[in-house]
C-alpha cells in the first residue's frame, strides 16, 4: 500500500518551500533582474548632448571592443584582480592553516577578531591610511632612509602595486576566514588514518587536507575576484588614476558625460567576466563547506 500520508507531507513541504521562496524571488526580480534588463536595453541607446536617445545600435559595443585604451581597462582589471586573488590565497592559506591546526581554540577566537579588524574600518579611510604608509614621506620610506638602506624614497604610492597592496590587505583576511572555516570542518580522523597508513606530514597535507579545503579557497577566491574587479575606490586613491580599470572607466562616462549607454556596456562586460569565472569555478563553490 502506498504511503499516502508521507506523500501528503512531501507535498505540503513543497508548497511551503514554494511559498517561502516567493519574497526572495520577487525581491530578485525587482532589484536585480529588472535593473539588469534595463541596463541591457540602455546599452544599445545613445547619449546625445545631455539626452538619452532610445535607439537599437551596437555602436557602444563596437567602440568599447574596438578601442585599444578602453579594452585595456578590461585587461588591466583582470590582471589586477588575478594578481590580487593569487597573492591573497598564498598569504591567507598558511595563516588559516596555522590558525586551524597550530593555535589553541582559546587563542583562535582572539586571532579571528584581529582577522576581521580590517572590515571595521571604512574603505576610503583604509585606502588613505595606506597612502600615509607608502607615500614618499611615509613610514616605510622614513624608516628605510633613516636606516641608510636607500638614498632616494621608493615610489610606491600611485602605482598598480599600491592598488594591489590595498586589495591584498583586505582580501587576505577574507580568504583566511573562508579557508579557516573549511579547514576546521575536515574530520581529524581522515588525517590520522592517512598517517596510520604511513603517509608523511607533507603527503597528508597534499593528499588529504589541501583537496578537502579547496571549496573554502574557491569560495574566498571567487568573492575576492567579484569584489575586487568591481572596486572603484582602491584603484582611484592608491593607484592615482595612472591607469584606468573598468570601474574607473565607468565613472568617467557617468560622472563627466552622463553617458549611461557606454557605462552599461562596460558594466555588462564586467558581469560577463564574472559569469565566466563563476562557470570555471562553480564545481568547487560549495557554500555549505565555509
Amino acid at each position: 500500500m502506498p504511503d499516502i500520508r508521507g506523500r501528503n507531507n512531501n507535498q505540503k513541504g513543497l508548497e511551503f518551500t514554494r511559498w517561502a521562496t516567493q519574497p526572495a524571488l520577487i525581491f530578485t526580480l525587482i532589484f536585480f533582474a529588472g535593473p539588469l534588463a534595463v541596463m541591457v536595453v540602455v546599452s544599445f541607446w545613445q547619449r546625445v548632448y545631455g539626452k538619452l536617445v532610445a535607439t537599437w545600435s551596437g555602436a557602444n559595443y563596437s567602440k568599447f571592443f574596438g578601442t585599444d585604451y578602453l579594452l585595456e581597462s578590461l585587461t588591466n582589471s583582470i590582471e589586477v584582480t588575478l594578481v590580487t586573488t593569487i597573492i591573497s590565497i598564498l598569504l591567507a592559506y598558511p595563516l588559516a592553516y596555522i590558525l586551524a591546526y597550530r593555535i589553541s581554540p582559546k587563542w583562535q577566537k582572539v586571532i579571528l577578531i584581529f582577522a576581521v579588524l580590517p572590515f571595521w574600518t571604512a574603505y576610503v579611510v583604509r585606502s588613505y591610511s595606506w597612502l600615509l604608509v607608502i607615500s614618499e614621506n611615509g613610514i616605510i620610506n622614513y624608516v628605510l632612509t633613516g636606516l641608510g638602506i636607500i638614498d632616494q624614497p621608493l615610489q610606491m604610492a600611485y602605482t598598480r602595486g599600491a592598488t594591489i597592496l590595498g586589495f591584498v590587505h583586505f582580501f587576505t583576511m577574507l580568504l583566511t576566514l573562508t579557508i579557516y572555516a573549511n579547514l576546521v570542518q575536515i574530520k581529524p580522523s581522515y588525517q590520522k588514518a592517512a598517517e596510520d597508513l604511513g603517509a608523511s606530514k607533507l603527503q597528508v597535507f597534499f593528499r588529504i587536507t589541501l583537496p578537502l579545503s579547496i571549496p573554502g579557497v574557491a569560495v574566498g577566491a571567487f568573492i575576492t575576484f567579484v569584489i575586487a574587479i568591481g572596486d572603484y575606490i582602491t584603484p582611484q586613491i592608491l593607484g592615482g588614476s595612472t591607469e584606468v580599470l573598468v570601474p574607473q572607466a565607468i565613472m568617467l562616462q557617468v560622472s563627466r558625460a552622463a553617458n549611461f549607454p557606454m557605462a552599461s556596456v562596460m558594466s555588462i562586460t564586467l558581469m560577463l567576466v564574472i559569469v565566466i569565472v563563476y562557470a570555471m569555478t562553480s564545481k568547487h563553490l560549495k557554500m555549505d563547506r565555509v
Binding site: 607615500s135 600611485y158 586613491i237
Partner: peptide, 16 residues
Amino acid sequence: LVGDVVGVQNALVNGD
C-alpha cells in the same frame, strides 16, 4: 597621479 581635489591635495601635502 591624476585625481580629484582631495586626492591631489593629499599628494601635495604628503610631499608626493
